[in-house]
Computed example of a mutant assay.
Amino acid sequence: MNTAAGIRPETVAVEETVRHGGDDGALPGIADPASVAPRDARELSRVFFRRLAELEEGTHAYQYARTTLIEMNMSLVRFAAGRFRGRGDDMEDVVQTGMIGLIKAIDRFELSREVEFTSFALPYIVGEIKRFFRDTTWAVHVPRRLQELRLELAKARDELSSRLDRDPTVAELATLMNLSEQEVVEAQIAANGYTSTSLDAALSGDGPEDGEAVLADFIGVEEEGLLLVEDVHALAPLMAELSDRDRRIIHMRFVEEATQAEIGERLGCSQMHVSRLIKRIITRLRRGMLGELGYA
């Protein structure tokens, strides 16, 4: 087989890798993973995911496998980002945001799911891009439901204003939008978060003057201790669901600060096995903290 016969040399390499890759535990060297065609990337990704699950996190081989997977699947990010072209934002920012979703998908994907990685990864990528638009368009974070409701509210207000020749009441808006008055009020309040005012703006008068109060003077600071309390309370029930051995491993690693090798000696298993156990436990706890147990 050669290029003259219409067969791409990289395809031949992929076929050889899929046939033999992993038999001796070695990963193929790919000079430019980003240039691998999407069809070939799907085949190669299976090989790399298989080895990634066997490798110890933090090793050179693990980092090579993970980095190669990211670069090989960048075409997924470009494909997803293309759906948002024309919104006026720098596409490079959109692509970089999509890369975060790709990395999350790679870290959470397991071959045992028996689904194509592309099908698993696209929701993560698109989700990160949509979150980017929500967070950068609005001055403050507002739930998506209320963001969409704001647009409907604006249309309803314009329609009633032209029809009634005055500003509509909450009750009139609620009737037209088929919502409760409380929901209309929530949408009106949420709409205030679309734009922001400078923290240096004077609270009274036409302009800032010496000794005049500004909004920043009345803004509190975030107490990190309270955040830690919230995290501890959220983690406690998840820890209670772990087996005795898993809780013991977590205690040895993060309370006693024992090394993986020391834990392996106590449990009677290899350091690599301990690494896999810790990764599995941490992944489960993280997903529980993020409300993603449905993916476990």
Score class of each variant (00 low, 15 high):
D90Q: 08
V221M: 09
L290Q: 09
I249F: 08
E16H: 12
R245M: 13
N2A: 14
L153Y: 04
D165Y: 07
K155W: 03
E16R: 15
A61P: 01
L235G: 06
E223A: 13
V47K: 04
T137K: 12
L267E: 14
P143T: 04
P28K: 12
V36R: 05
T118W: 08
L173W: 00
R113C: 07
E116M: 13
W138V: 03
I129M: 13
L227C: 04
A296L: 15
R131K: 14
V221S: 13
D231E: 12
T97A: 09
K279L: 07
A258N: 13
L238R: 05
W138F: 15
R163P: 01
A187R: 00
Y64K: 08
S75I: 01
G82R: 01
A213M: 04
L52H: 06
M72S: 05
Y295I: 06
S243F: 06
A261F: 06
F120R: 07
L227M: 09
R248Y: 13
V142R: 02
L228K: 14
A139N: 10
R134S: 14
G29R: 15
T67W: 09
I100D: 02
A13N: 14
A234E: 11
V214Q: 14
A65D: 04
V214G: 08
D244Y: 09
R42Q: 12
I30R: 07
E110Y: 09
E15N: 11
P33V: 05
A31F: 10
V14E: 13
I7T: 12
